[in-house]
Amino acid sequence: MGQIRALAAADIPAVAGLFQKAFRRTDAAPSDAFVACLRTLYVDHPLVHDSLPSLVHESKAGISGFISRHRLPMQIGGRAVNGALFGTIMADKGAGHSLIGPKLLKAALAGPQDFSFADTTSDISRTLGQRLGCTPLPSHSLNWLRIIRPTQWLADQVTQRFRPFGLLAPVAGAADDMLRRRIHPNRPRWFAHGAQNAAKGAATTDIGAEKFAALFLALSRRFALQPRWDCEDITTLSRQAMEKRLFGTPHFGAVTDQHGTEIGCFLYHLKKGSTARVLQVLAAPGVEGVVLDALITNAADKGAAAVIGRTEAWLMEAMLGRRIGFTNTASSMVHSRDADILAAVTRGDVLLNGFVGEQWSPMIGNRFE
C-alpha cells in the first residue's frame, strides 16, 4: 500500500512528473525550469521548515502522491503559534490506491502545527477536508470582480480563447472611453466605472516592495491572528510575488488620507486593457471602503478593464454598494483545535488569503515550458 514520508530534495523530479500526470494530463517530461521552481518552492523556500515538510506517498512504483506544506509563523494575543499552509495535493490515479489523497491530507493535518489553512482547495478537496474536521470559510472563498471597461473586458475574455478577437481591442477601448465619460460619479453602474470616479479623501502613491513590506507589517497589527514576520520576510515574499508573467506588471500602492496618514496598501498585477489581479490589500480599521475605492481607481487610471481579487472577512462590508460581483472558483478552509484561533477565525479577526495563503506562489501566474 506504500508509505507516507517527508519530501526529500531527491524527490523533486518525481513530484514534477506527478504534476504533469495529475494536472496537465501528460506523461511528457517536465521542463528543467519547472523542476527548478518546485525545488525552490518546496525545498529551499524561507517558509519551508523541518517541522512541517511537504509529504509524499511512496509505493513500489515510486512517488504516487504529494501534498505541500509551508510553515506560517503567526501570533494571537501576543502568543506565538504556527500554522501550516497547505497547497497542492495530488495522487497518481494509475497507482491503484484510491485512498492516497485522503491519507496524505490526514497525515498532514496530524502534524505539530497549531492550525492548518488552505486557500486553493477544489470542491473535491474541500469535501474531503470537511470529512476530516476542516471548516470552510465562505467569506474567504469568493473572487470579487469590479468591471471598469465592460466592452474591453468582454473582448479580453474572448481574446484569451480566440486570439484574432484581439484586433477589436482598440474599438472596444474607444467605446468604453465614451461610456465612462458619460457616467455620473455619484451614480455607480454595475458594468462600468466612471472616468470621474475617485476615492474621496484619499490619495494613492506608487511604492516599492520595501515600503509595501513596512505598511503590510503596520496594518496587519489590527488582526487578532496575524503573521509573525519582519519586513525582510515580507519583502522576500513580495519580490517573489512580483514574478507572474501571465498576469502582467506588478503595481504596489500606498493610500493616504487627507492628512497624509498612511491608511492602506495594495499589490496587483496588470496587463493594460486586461484584468488587474489583486494579490493583497490592507486597510486601517474604519477606512476599508476608502482604500478599496483607491485601489479600483488606481487600476482604472492604469488602463485596467476590470479588477479581481479574493475576499476576506474584514473587507466584505466595505464591498456593499460598490457594484462588486462574486464568484467561487476555489475555497479556503481551516483546521484547528486551538479555541483562541477558532474564535478569531469565527469572528473574522484574522489575516488570511493573499500573502498569508498561496497566491504569492510562482506556481500561480507563470508557465514553465
Rank of each mutant, 00 (worst) to 15 (best):
V255A: 09
V334A: 04
Q280M: 14
I341S: 04
G325N: 12
M319V: 06
A299C: 11
A241Y: 05
E232A: 15
V281I: 15
V287N: 07
F266I: 07
P250E: 03
L279F: 09
T236S: 10
V291C: 13
D340G: 10
G273N: 09
K302A: 13
Y268I: 07
P250L: 10
T275P: 00
I296G: 00
A283Q: 02
R239G: 05
L270K: 12
R277F: 14
R277D: 00
L342M: 15
Q226E: 14
T235K: 13
G286F: 04
S332H: 02
L237H: 04
L320D: 03
R245C: 03
T236E: 03
C231L: 11
S238D: 03
A330I: 11
A276P: 02
L267C: 08
I341E: 10
V307F: 09
V278C: 07
V255R: 04
D301E: 13
D293E: 11
P227S: 12
R337I: 01
G264E: 02
A300C: 05
Q280T: 10
T329R: 05
H269A: 11
D301W: 10
A299S: 08
M319I: 06
L282W: 02
Q226R: 15
S274F: 14
F223L: 11
L225I: 05
G303E: 12
